[in-house]
Computed example of a mutant assay.
Amino acid sequence: MNDTEEVDVELGEAMRTQHACRYYREDPVPDEVLRQAVERARFAPNGGNRGAARFVFVRDPELRRQLGEWYLPLWEEVAAATRANKPAITTASGQHKTTELGFRDPAKTLADSDHFAQRFGSHPVIVVVCVDLAATHPTDTELDRLSIVGGASVYPMAQNLCLALRDQGVATTFTTLLVAREPEVKQLLGIPEHLSTACHIVAGYPARPFPTRLHRPEVRELAYADRYGAAL
């Protein structure tokens, strides 16, 4: 199969098998594949149809290497806390960041994630997903909790991008760890001051077949009817 040939995966299958890929081939992802993914992703719902999201596709080896150097220690902190059975990392400001894993085989997941993190800077494409926060309309800023609503103007498009790549045989991994190094990433890549980084997506042709089934919480654990806890 030619790398630019579409796989034409049925939508339900794509949603059930879009895993966090940890092993990639070295093959480059053609510009046309990336362009086609953005062409589809742009139709995602977003606040006011303002198109607040932007994508920077990083392929330059030296730029990827630097991103990898910044990513690895962020992952190692999480991995160390997880292996030490710490349920969360407490930051200097008192915030708690969970480290718990919901996987059937946490040891294997951590080993695969170590492999991914150690090679982060050599994966074929690192997509920096940016957002113009002034173009979002968060309605939860006055609540006594972390604001999350603004993400609705960027993450659906990021997920659409992953699905559009999956349809073309390209695997992805969605990560937010590197956002902690936003100032350095923005300076490295010339990202305008008014944009913020929302996440990073690694993309490339998978070195192993796509999974046929992913382990996720069952519907009964996720959805309720009328009132929380009432079975759907």
Rank of each mutant, 00 (worst) to 15 (best):
G150T: 01
P156F: 15
Y205T: 07
I191L: 05
T172L: 15
E221S: 01
E142A: 14
A164H: 05
I148H: 11
A203C: 14
H200K: 02
L143Q: 04
P217M: 09
L161W: 08
T141G: 05
Y205I: 06
L222P: 05
R145L: 06
A203D: 04
T136L: 01
E218Q: 00
L143S: 10
V170I: 06
A164D: 13
S196D: 08
P206R: 09
A198K: 02
F174R: 07
L178T: 01
S196V: 06
R208P: 11
R213F: 01
L143K: 13
A180P: 03
L195H: 06
E221L: 00
A207H: 05
R166I: 02
S147E: 08
L214K: 06
D167K: 11
A223G: 00
T197I: 15
P209M: 04
T173Q: 05
L146G: 13
P183T: 01
L214Q: 12
G151R: 02
T139V: 12
P217H: 04
H194G: 00
E184C: 00
D140C: 09
L161K: 11
A135K: 14
E184N: 04
P211I: 06
E193N: 14
H200C: 02
T141E: 15
H215N: 10
A158F: 11
L163I: 06
E142L: 09
A207V: 09
P209N: 07
F210D: 13
T212R: 06
V185S: 00
L143G: 02
R216T: 11
H215S: 14
R208H: 15
V149A: 03
L143Y: 08
E142P: 02
Y155A: 03
T141R: 12
F210K: 04
D144T: 10
T197F: 00
H194P: 10
A135H: 13
V154R: 00
R213A: 15
E182A: 06
R220K: 14
G169K: 04
A223Y: 03
I191C: 14
T141Y: 04
F210L: 15
R208M: 15
L189W: 09
T175M: 12
V219P: 03
T212G: 04
L189R: 02
Y155M: 04
T175Q: 07
T139M: 11
